[in-house]
Nucleic acid binder design. Sequence first.
DNA 1: TTGAAAGCGCTAACAC
DNA 2: GTGTTAGCGCTTTCAA
Lengths: 337, 337
Amino acid sequence: MVQRERATIHEVAARAGVSEATVSRALRGLQHVAPETVEQVRRAAAELGYTPSRSAAALATGRARTVSVIVPGVASWFYAAVLEGVDDALRAAGYTVGLVSLSAPDGGRRPLTAAELHAGQAEAHVVIAFELDDDEQALLRATPAPIVTVGGAVEGVRGIGIPEEEAAGMVVEHLAALGHRRIGHIGADREDGLNPGIAAARRDAWRAAVARLGLEARPEWFASGAFRIEASRDAALRVLTGPERPTAIFAASDVSAFGVLLAAQALGLRVPQDLSVAGIDDHPYSAAHGLTTVRQSPREQGARAAAMLLRELGVRGPVPPATPIELVVRASTGPPA
Amino acid sequence: MVQRERATIHEVAARAGVSEATVSRALRGLQHVAPETVEQVRRAAAELGYTPSRSAAALATGRARTVSVIVPGVASWFYAAVLEGVDDALRAAGYTVGLVSLSAPDGGRRPLTAAELHAGQAEAHVVIAFELDDDEQALLRATPAPIVTVGGAVEGVRGIGIPEEEAAGMVVEHLAALGHRRIGHIGADREDGLNPGIAAARRDAWRAAVARLGLEARPEWFASGAFRIEASRDAALRVLTGPERPTAIFAASDVSAFGVLLAAQALGLRVPQDLSVAGIDDHPYSAAHGLTTVRQSPREQGARAAAMLLRELGVRGPVPPATPIELVVRASTGPPA
DNA sequence: TTGAAAGCGCTAACAC
DNA sequence: GTGTTAGCGCTTTCAA
C-alpha cells in the first residue's frame, strides 16, 4: 500500500456517498446509523487508508485523549514497567501516553512544575511519586485534572501501591522462620525533602516486625543504600563488618539486595550459609541471582492507575483487580549456619 | 495560582489590546513585531497562565510537533536510555515524543504495522531496530516520513550505532594483551527472522579479532545467551564445563556478562584469576560488578537520532557529535592464573 | 437515520 | 508592524 497524503473525512464521505457527519458517527460506532451505511463507510475508509486526525478531533471535542505519565526518569526498571502498564491500558482505550521524563541529561532531575504538567495537554496524569519534594506534592494536590500516583503515596492524592508493612513483614517473618535472630536492614534514609514514603515505611516495618518476633533491631544493623546498587553494597559492607554481624539482611529493594550480594561476595561470605539476603520487587534479574523476594507488579500497577483515570474520564471498562503480593523463596535465603 | 479554564489566544489578545495574529506572532518569536508589543503580549499571556493549544496549532499547521519512538519495550536499560535521549532533544525543540511500545502485557511483542506507525500522527520516527523482522524492516523502507534507527541497522534506513567490529575488537585485544589465549564468546544466534545485526556483528568480530591475533575461535567456545541474563548464565555453564575451557570470555553485552559472572560463581571460578569476563555497554550495574566493558551511550544515541530528524523537519540546531566508544577496564579482567 | 452549518483555537496569506 | 480573513479536519447541535 503506497503512502499518499493522509485522507480526510471529507474524502471518505465523498467516496461512501454520505456526509462527513455520518462518517464521523459511523466510524465512532455511535447509535442511529444504518448498518449498511456503517459498512459502506468502513469500506471507503479502509480503501483510502483513512486515519482520523487526532488534533482535529481534540480541537473539536476539547479532549486530547492523552494521559501524561510523570516519571523521575525512565531508565529504572520500576518506572519503565509502570510506563508500559499505563501504555497498555491507554492504548486499549484509544488514548496515548504523554511522556514527561524529569531526568536531565546530566543525571539530575528537573522539578515538576505546572507548566510541565500541562504542556502535554493531558486530560489526566499518572505520577510516579517516589522522589517528589513538598512543593511538587502540593502542586499535585492543587491540580484539577484527575491524578493517580504510583509508588510513594502523596497525602491528598489517590495512589496505587503495595501494602508496605505487609511486604516487609513477609520478608522478616520468612527469615525469622528460618531461624535467624539477627536480621539487618539495608534501606534508605530520608533525603533532603524528598518523599520518604517507601523507604521510611519499609524501615519502620522492619523494626516493627522484628520487635513483634521478640528480636532486636540494633541501629548498627541498619544502613542506607539509597536504593542504589553501589551505595547498598557499601552500606552492607559497613553493617557486615561490625562486631556482631547479622546473619540475614532484609534489603528494601532487589537492587539494594544486589548490592548486599556483592558485599557478601567481597567479604567471602557464602549465601545463604553465612548470610541470607532477601529483597522486595522481583526485579527481572532476581531469578537469575537466586534472590528471595516479594513479588510486586509495577506493570499491573501502571495499568490499574490508567484504568482508574480512564473511568473517571468517562471511558468504559473495569479497573482490573490487583494481584496480591507474594513471597518468592529462592536460594539466597536459608537457615543460619 | 488557581487553575481556571485554560485561556485562549483570543483572551490574551483582548487583554493585550492586539489581534490574535499578533499574539501568535509575538509568542512564537516571529519577526516584525514591535518589542514593546511583544512585551505586552508576554505579560498578558503570563497573567492568564496561557498555554497554546497543541491540537489547534497542529491542525492549523499540519504539523503535530511529535516524533514517535518505537521500542520493543521500555523495560530494558538500553531502550529506556535511548528514549530519554530522544525526549531530551525533542523537549528542547518544543516537540514531544509519541511513545509506541510494542511490548504486550503477556511478555510478547506486537508487530510493527503501518497503523501503529501512523497512529501517533508523528512527523518522524526513531525506531529501535534490534528486534525487527523482515516485514517490519520493509515497512520502514516504505514509509515516507523521516526515520532514523538506533541499534541494529536496517538496510536502506539511516541508523545510529557504535562501530561494532571496533568495540568487539577492543575487548578481544584487551584480553589477548593480558595474556589470554583461549577467549570464548557468549552472544546470540540468529533468531527466527529477527534482525540479526548486532549479534552477528559481534560474533563475527570476535572470530575476526581472535584470528587476527593468531588465536583460535573454537566453536565450543561460543554459545548463545540471547542477550538475557539467565540464558547467558546457562550458555556460559556449557562453555566453561567443556574439556579445554576458555580463560576469558567476551560477552556480547553487559547483561550477558552478568550471566557469565553468575556461571563463574556457580562453578567456583574466581574472577579474574580463573576467568576474565568483559562485555559491551557499560550498563548502570556494571561498575558495581567491577565489570570491564566498552562504554557506549544509548542516551546520547537517542539524542543524536532526534536531532537528525529535527533538522530534517526544519528545526534549527546542530546534531551533537558522537562520543567515541571507550574501553573501561575494571576488576573482572586480569592475566590468566 | 441523515445532512447542513457552526465552531473548536490556532496559523498563514494578504491587506493596510 | 499589525489587523482581517479564511481555513486546518473534525464533532456537534439542530433540522429535516
